[in-house]
Design a binder for these strands. Structure first.
Length: 788
DNA sequence: CGTACTAGTCTTTTT
DNA sequence: GACTAGTACG
């Protein structure tokens, strides 16, 4: 009995076909990760391949981590030598070693979208581009697409001849790159582009990696863009042992440059490629699969395949339409609750998926009200939050003075009386001498133009220099705490009137604990390495699935995951498929949207529920949307409710207190069959409908750093273990004079009883049940509670 | 130089 | 509706 016996025939083929190019078309839930991991095991154990010679590339750190873990389990010793990582980390690793060969400093920083925008704004100002007619975002989008396609600024300019807008973009592109180079920075796209450039310009470097990576595997191949394809092609061109795994039906990242042709044309590029299809699904029930197949069938130009399963038929696909998004959210929350109560589900194996992040809020509100533990994935990335970016900017400045964006970000945060004029003058000086902004600051006294403002700059420089020298011996944790203390950043927040100040502080605490965790797991971890790791994490990487919480996320984020119970909310034309896809004149946009539906449906193992609302608030406007065409593409016999044949809002009869009841009271509307024929988009127009009074707003806790933990006392955000040490002294927050059981008084919430007191990394976290306002978790220093 | 208010934009999705 | 950038004023 070997480990390969549990594989089916196609899977075995995928594992045993080790040499030459292989295209593994793996349908949803067909066990592709298993194939990949077994393949790696087979290469090492049966083929005698050195683990060192194997490269496995994924898109997210999470996927990489999971694969790493599984490889470790099957192979054991030696597994750590297999190079398993994401495209971006792979490139960073290579560039850190060799980018000096193409004129960069190996100590480069990575710019995120926010930083890019800052640079681009600057560029536009300098080039006098009218951002009214040509927006920064447009330029950034164009530049990013160009990079995805490996189009250099020079080439872009050549192609732009005659087109005024494109010429402007070309200029901006060139200038943007030169700013980045001066700042010794690369953006996300550059990581790939520069690696390709390096390989092309330095054949000896490429040859080294070609020899190293004799067996290459790429996961989620349908999401690769042209640059990534080129990268892989170069690496694999020596041995040609390239195994790509993907599913053209799950290609959903066109907007990010993904080129579906990479997978569709693989056999043209590698004529000798073995093509293996994995069509047996081990995840879902037959009904779920039938629904998925029925939807995706409407796409043209896909690789022919159909999923099947030996799992039972399963239950019907549930469909419910509601009057409002509020009702929809209520239903979803209730339904989850009911299933859990009946013992048919646990929170952790339920997920609610939606098209846009904005839809999360209403669901969140209901989950809070019903006390259901949940986690929202995505939205604003933790590391993109203002306070976190500020802290990181300090770290970056300490780490690398040539990162102008970072220096400028924090030079006046907290306020030091250094304004735009001074900054501009310093920049002029720096430009004149060809030095970095920070280096110019150090010579502040020599900059004639700034006059007496120079006095304000000196303390800043001194502070950074002090951090630098101290960081040598007191480690990352000491450094960040020193920064917080010396700058008074948190102090300022504590005094702040803004109501999200507390969340910000919590986020900073979370950052501290992340730094501590990083130091614990990386013996030799340096500041640069930490910043690098942080720059490349995605939201999806941060979810931990052992929390037994319902997950709320976008359909995009859900790819690669599976849940017993899946809710697809907002199944309305105009929401999903989105307004953009409906109005687009390209069929491809709608097809991509349909693939997204396919991804969503196939996340479900047992139970799939589709919901929609007749009326929904979108961008501050009430919209009336018909049921999604994707729901209509599912055969009626698979659904437990009929899809009403209503085409327009004015055909709908709104029930009194109805939720779903009105579904059956709907007047039959029978102008033939056409699903969308009679439907004209009514975006924005608001007919007078007796909408229900708006339910009382519920306070949704601001996204807490790691997870939302509503109503879970005792734990809470600050309950970070093993991070104490320095909690005292930094803020001067002494021990509270109250303890669990004491009666206390709060300025706003009145009197209450302390039910929990936890020592956080920087402050005490106190849980109080107020007589009037219910339970609150807050920071002791912040809450200013009075013992009674 | 900093603050407060206003106007405009945005929403698809993210490494 | 929410957030952000830009402007006017102190």
């Amino acid at each position: 009995m070997s480990i390969y016996d549990t594989l089916n025939e196609q899977q075995k083929q995928g594992v045993f076909t080790t040499d030459g190019p292989v295209l593994l078309l793996a349908g949803a839930g067909s066990g592709k990760t298993r194939v990949l991991t077994h393949r790696i095991a087979y290469l090492i154990k049966e083929m005698g391949v050195q683990p060192y010679h194997i490269l496995a590339i994924t898109f997210t750190n999470k996927a990489a981590g999971e694969m790493r873990e599984r490889v470790n389990t099957i192979i054991g010793h030696g597994a750590e030598q297999v190079w398993v990582s994401t495209f971006h980390s792979t490139c960073v690793r290579i560039l850190r070693r060799y980018i000096d060969r193409i004129g960069f400093d190996n100590h480069f920083t990575i710019y995120d979208t926010d930083d890019q925008k800052t640079v681009m704004k600057d560029v536009c100002k300098r080039l006098q581009i009218d951002t009214k007619t040509l927006k920064e975002r447009t330029i950034m989008g164009a530049v990013s697409s160009a990079k995805d396609e490996l189009v250099s600024p020079e080439e872009y300019l050549r192609q732009a001849q005659g087109d005024y807008h494109k010429m402007k973009i070309a200029q901006a592109y060139a200038e943007y790159q030169s700013v980045l180079r001066k700042s010794n920075a690369l953006d996300f796209d550059d990581l790939i582009v520069k690696t390709v450039e390096l390989f092309k310009l330095c054949p000896e470097v490429l040859a080294g990696y070609q020899d190293r990576f004799r067996y290459i595997m790429v996961d989620e191949y349908q999401d690769t863009n042209t640059a990534q394809f080129e990268l892989i092609r170069l690496l694999a061109s020596q041995y040609r042992n390239l195994c790509v795994v993907g599913d053209d039906d799950q290609s959903i990242y066109k907007f990010r440059g993904a080129n579906i042709r990479n997978i569709l044309d693989f056999e043209q590029v590698y004529p000798e490629a073995a093509v293996i299809k994995l069509e047996q699904n081990y995840r879902s029930t037959q009904h779920v699969l039938d629904a998925a197949n029925a939807v995706i069938r409407n796409n043209a130009g896909r690789k022919d395949k159909a999923l099947w399963t030996q799992n039972g038929e399963g239950s019907m696909v549930h469909f419910r339409q509601f009057d409002t998004a509020y009702d929809e959210a209520e239903f979803v929350a209730d339904d989850v609750m009911r299933k859990v109560r009946e013992g048919r589900a646990s929170y952790g194996n339920c997920a609610v998926l939606y098209r846009t992040n904005a839809q999360a809020r209403m669901l969140e509100e209901r989950f809070v009200v019903e006390g259901i533990p949940y986690d929202v994935v995505g939205g604003t990335n933790f590391y993109a939050r203002r306070e976190i970016k500020d802290m990181l900017a300090y770290l970056k400045t300490v780490d690398n003075g040539s990162d102008d964006v970072a220096v400028k970000r924090i030079i006046n945060v907290p306020k030091r009386g250094i304004g735009a004029t001074t900054i501009a003058r310093v920049q002029e000086y720096a430009d004149g001498r060809g030095i970095s902004f920070y280096d110019a600051l150090r010579e502040a006294d020599r900059i004639m133009t700034i006059g007496k403002s120079a006095v304000k700059l000196e303390p800043f420089v001194t502070m950074i220099q002090t951090f630098r020298s101290k960081s040598e011996y007191y480690g990352l944790e000491g450094l960040i705490k020193d920064i917080i203390e010396t700058t008074g950043y948190v102090e300022e927040l504590e005094q702040s009137e803004e109501d999200d100040a507390e969340d910000r502080i919590a986020n900073i605490d979370e950052l501290i604990s992340k730094i501590v965790a990083y130091e614990e797991s990386h013996e030799e971890g340096s500041l640069s390495e930490f910043l690098e790791e942080v720059a490349l994490v995605a939201d999806i990487d941060r979810i931990d699935d052992d929390g037994n919480r319902v997950l709320l996320m976008t359909l995009h984020s859900a790819k690669g995951l599976e849940f017993s119970h899946v809710y697809l909310a907002g199944m309305e034309d105009g929401v999903f498929p989105g307004y953009m896809a409906i109005t687009s004149d390209s069929v491809e946009d709608m097809e991509e949207e349909r693939r997204l539906a396919y991804v969503g449906i196939t996340r479900a193992k047992e139970d799939l529920t589709l919901t929609c609302a007749r009326q929904r608030m979108l961008r501050g406007e009430t919209q009336y949307n018909p049921v999604s065409r994707f729901v209509k593409e599912i055969p009626e016999e698979l659904l437990d409710r009929k899809v009403p044949s209503v085409k327009r809002w004015d055909e709908v009869e709104y029930g009194e207190d109805s939720r779903e009841r009105s579904l059956f009271k709907t007047k039959p509307f029978d102008s033939g069959e056409g699903n969308t024929a009679a439907y004209r988009p009514v975006f924005g127009t608001t007919p007078a409908v007796s909408a229900k009074p708006k339910p009382k707003a519920v306070a949704v806790p601001k996204r807490t750093p790691a997870q939302n933990r509503p109503f879970i006392s005792g734990g809470g955000v600050g309950a970070l273990k093993g991070v104490n040490g320095l909690s005292k002294g930094i803020q001067g927050t002494g021990e509270p004079d109250y303890t669990v059981g004491d009666r206390v008084k709060h300025v706003k919430y009145g009197e209450g009883t302390v039910t929990g007191l936890e020592k956080g990394p920087r402050d005490y976290q106190v849980t109080v049940v107020f007589d009037g306002a219910g339970q609150k978790i807050m920071y002791a220093a912040f809450a200013k509670l009075k013992k009674l």
